[in-house]
């Protein structure tokens, strides 16, 4: 375990160190202290490292992550795990807007709440939120899944493509072209596996499933007169 105090080690230097760990290097576990809301903590990692950040981080923490397992003991600011490719990011507190935005893969777990636009334009990432998500979550989501144990704010899944959404609590409103769908045995199993992977305890049967109504996909011949 390598310990790095961000009060004394510049963030850029620290990130470069984490980004340049080689595939065969032995030192793969890091603990960062005193982030004090700094931006882009542990962003751009490409190796299967284990990084724990003790405290609250600012914007864009763990962005573009590939393979690394990153854990934050406090809260995270805007754009947490943005465009994550693979690996796992876990936040013990709350996360701000656009958590997991455009994520292509990997697992993001926020044990608390996230605010608006969680999973916006998600492209394959799996997101599990222990609390509630804010408005416009999963906006234009293309692939992957979002499971929310609490409530979802207004316009959930607006203009959704094919991402799967599961909500245990109340959905304030569904966005355009998002509708409730049947929770089949197949989906119960998928959600069960996702919750297990996220180490979040909940019964899949308590969730409702939402997905794309697929009405915005194609040009409608009835609109021809508009051109």
């Amino acid at each position: 375990m390598i310990e790095i105090d961000l009060d004394t080690s510049p963030l850029r230097e620290t990130n470069r160190r984490l980004q340049t760990v080689g595939a065969n290097d032995n030192a793969r576990q890091f603990r960062l202290f005193n982030p004090r809301g700094a931006h882009a903590v542990a962003a751009g990692l490409t190796e299967d490292l284990e990084v724990t950040v003790e405290g609250h981080v600012g914007f864009y923490c763990s962005g573009m992550n590939r393979q690394a397992k990153i854990q934050v003991t406090g809260n995270a600011g805007v754009g947490l795990a943005e465009n994550m490719m693979s690996g796992e990011v876990r936040v013990a507190g709350n996360a701000s807007q656009s958590a997991g935005a455009t994520g292509q893969g990997g697992l993001l777990v926020v044990e608390g709440d996230t605010s608006s636009r969680c999973g916006i334009s998600m492209k394959g990432i799996d997101i599990v939120v222990g609390g509630s998500v804010g408005h416009m979550s999963a906006f234009m989501g293309q692939a992957g899944s979002l499971a929310v144990l609490g409530d979802a704010g207004n316009s959930l899944g607006d203009s959704l493509y094919e991402a799967r959404l599961y909500v245990r609590g109340r959905v304030e409103s569904l966005g355009a072209d998002c509708k409730e769908k049947e929770m089949t045995a197949h989906h119960l199993e998928k959600l069960g596996r996702l919750l297990d992977r996220a180490r979040i305890s909940a019964n899949p049967r308590d969730f409702r499933r939402y997905g794309s109504a697929r009405q915005l996909y194609h040009f409608k011949i009835g609109n021809l007169g508009a051109y």
């Binding site: 809301g37 609250h56 600012g58 406090g74 809260n75 600011g77 804010g134």
Partner: peptide, 22 residues
């Protein structure tokens, strides 16, 4: 606007922190 401004205050680590709703 950002938490890092609040992080300069004494006791910030133990503060109750939340994002105001729209």
């Amino acid at each position: 606007t950002e938490y890092r401004a609040i992080a300069t205050l004494p006791g910030a680590q133990e503060a109750r922190i939340w994002e105001p709703k729209p």
